[in-house]
Computed example of a mutant assay.
Amino acid sequence: MQQIAKDFLTRCFAPGETIALLLRSECDGKMRQRVVTLEQATDVRYLNWLAYQNHHGVNLYAAANPLRSGSRRRTKESIIAVRHIYIDIDVDGDARLAALRASDGVPVPSAILSTSPGKYQALWRVEGFDFATQEDMLKRLASAFGGDPACTDCNRVLRIPGFYNWKYTPAHCVAVEYPSDATYRPADFRLPESSEFAALPLRRNTRLNGSHKDTHSEHDWAWACHELAQGKDAHKLTHLLAEHRSDKPNPLYYAQRTIDIASARQWLLEGAPLEDVITMLQVRRDAELPAAQCCARAREIATTAQRMISRKKFA
């Protein structure tokens, strides 16, 4: 838990930077704010304290951008630089995240947080943005992909992965994946003005309406499900799919995720308990990912497959 949070904060901020943390009690709504350096926030004793607070029903957040040294509050004026572009997807999350992944208008996200079932926050690590450009881009993202229009401030907070979201019963452990290590500039985002979102171009001509023909990704999905059902080796299938989809920004990531979700779906349909599916996914990728990240990723993929099956049952 603490290691996942530490990895996330270390990826998001540079050594010596000042960051803002927000602690909100789910039971009474009381909020506390802490302004600390990255080193303080990632110290083992401080992380243990945060874990203690979270264990007792406190939701944990971090500001998306660093603060000026000496700041005491998380105000717009205290933000020193734009470090992230982000979107908060609260409604129809799986479909809207799929549209975001498929779009040619945005690069591959630096991080995707699963904040609760079917709800996500996507972040892009950026440079070269001023505050006005960032705010405009946040509005464009929200308009393009159905994100929360309120999440367009430079001092916005995001949930910290590795900790529990106590808004739900049972509490949901916030998971994270890192599709890209790139740092992006304004030119990498090719979104039209908010009023022009009639139809964004999608990678490989993917469409989202119900009458379209099978897309390349759908063919990949059908192929993966068929091959796995025939007992083919998942690692070999992953490498075959990655080679076949060299058009993807991150072919290996795309292939791993496709094969793993298809595997999880098959295991669940065969009657395997969810926790066993999570364990099998961890074992499959434990040589490729750090232990904490591997665990969080396996749980997110297994629950995604579970939701896919549930939607089919009740469609």
Rank of each mutant, 00 (worst) to 15 (best):
R203E: 05
R203T: 06
R203D: 05
R204N: 04
N205R: 04
N205A: 11
T206C: 09
T206E: 14
R207A: 15
R207S: 15
R207V: 15
L208T: 01
N209G: 07
N209V: 10
G210E: 06
G210P: 00
G210N: 04
G210W: 13
S211P: 04
S211L: 14
S211I: 13
H212E: 09
H212P: 02
K213F: 15
K213H: 14
D214R: 11
D214H: 12
D214N: 11
T215R: 01
T215V: 03
S217W: 02
S217T: 07
S217G: 08
S217I: 08
E218I: 12
H219A: 14
H219V: 15
H219N: 12
H219I: 15
D220V: 08
W221P: 01
A222H: 07
A222E: 03
A222Q: 03
A222I: 04
A222M: 02
A222R: 02
C225Q: 10
H226Y: 14
H226W: 14
H226T: 15
E227L: 07
L228H: 01
A229N: 04
A229Y: 00
Q230C: 13
Q230E: 12
G231K: 06
G231D: 11
G231N: 08
K232C: 09
K232L: 08
D233F: 06
D233M: 04
D233A: 10
D233G: 03
A234L: 13
A234F: 13
A234M: 13
A234Q: 12
A234K: 10
H235T: 05
H235Q: 05
K236I: 14
L237S: 00
L237N: 01
T238F: 10
T238A: 05
T238V: 12
H239K: 02
H239M: 08
H239Q: 08
L241I: 08
A242F: 15
